[in-house]
């Protein structure tokens, strides 16, 4: 914070030099550990470290398991965003905490008279400009990250299977297109993109196959679509993410990601004819 750039309001233009003298330089003067910059830097590093550690370890550990490439990228996004946000937030914490440590006289909280006035620092051009530019850069990074992930996730694939999801108070039913099979459990083949055509029989529901990392509302009268790419065998949960009345909490079920073979077997078990299965699974290709 160089002394030339302290702004004072128009009445005090003449006092600029005087104010500048009172302000300790941010970077310069004295041994390094006595400069404000150093104190802020220490707190900043500490808070950044904590933030980065939280970002790297907390979400991955507490976040639900992932069964799709979409959920993989959700996890990655959270890690990346936290790691980016940590140093930025730490600047605020650093400045605020340093001020509290350095410029709060002991017992000031119990005093009925205020401490003497601080420095009449009414702004600082370069600091504001740097702050603004960093925010702009960050916003651009965040935006591009989001746009890239979004477009890669929802690109339709040639061999995608299309199925219908019907929400109603308070049950999900899943229909496997031309096979005419309906189930309350969602079974999906692995490594195939699946496009859900989601609709509702009554009010708005939120179709949320949790570990697939996608969701879309179910509306009465028309269907909305969302694509997911299951990439890991195993169980996942399906929940309703939109309050839909009395038994909203119970509008949930489970799903399984299985191999292509198991998937066909399951459809056959449910009563689909081999011809219909063939049609349904290869139709899209």
């Amino acid at each position: 914070m160089s002394s030339e750039n302290i702004e004072i309001d128009e009445f005090h233009e003449g006092k600029r030099e005087e104010v500048a003298k009172q302000v300790e330089p941010f970077f310069k003067g004295g041994p390094i550990w006595k400069r404000p910059f150093f104190g802020v830097f220490i707190i900043w590093s500490f808070m950044t470290l904590i933030g980065v550690l939280i970002g790297l370890f907390v979400p991955v550990h507490v976040l639900n398991g992932s069964s799709s490439s979409q959920q993989d990228s959700v996890k990655l996004t959270i890690v990346v965003f936290t790691v980016i946000a940590a140093p930025v937030s730490a600047v605020v914490y650093g400045i605020a905490a340093y001020s509290l440590i350095k410029w709060n006289k002991r017992g000031s909280g119990k005093s009925d008279t205020p401490p003497e006035d601080g420095v009449a620092l009414r702004g600082h051009g370069p600091a504001t400009v740097i702050w603004l530019s960093i925010s702009v850069v960050l916003v651009v990074i965040l935006l591009f990250w989001g746009m890239m992930v979004l477009s890669s996730e929802q690109t339709p694939q040639g061999d995608a299977i299309r199925m219908q999801v019907v929400g109603q108070q308070w049950v999900w039913t899943f229909q496997y297109g031309s096979t005419k099979i309906t189930s309350t459990q969602l079974v999906l083949p692995v490594d195939r993109q699946v496009v859900f055509e989601v609709s509702s029989k009554d009010v708005t529901h939120g179709f949320w196959p949790v570990q697939l990392g996608v969701q879309v509302d179910a509306n009465p009268g028309f269907s909305t679509t969302i694509a997911a790419s299951p990439n890991k065998l195993g169980k996942f949960d399906v929940r309703c993410s939109q309050l839909c009345g009395l038994e909203h909490a119970y509008m949930q079920t489970t799903g399984r990601v299985v191999t292509e073979k198991q998937f066909e077997h399951w459809l056959a078990q449910k009563g689909a004819s081999p011809k219909a299965i063939k049609l349904f699974t290869t139709d899209a290709k």
Partner: peptide, 27 residues
């Protein structure tokens, strides 16, 4: 566990208003 009735015996949109949304009658 939770049980409820899926026949729209209430009124309003989808027939799920009133009695269908009141706890203890159809649920």
């Amino acid at each position: 566990y939770e049980w409820n009735c899926e026949f729209p015996c209430g009124n309003g949109i989808g027939g799920f208003g009133a009695v269908m949304s009141a706890y203890g009658f159809m649920s």
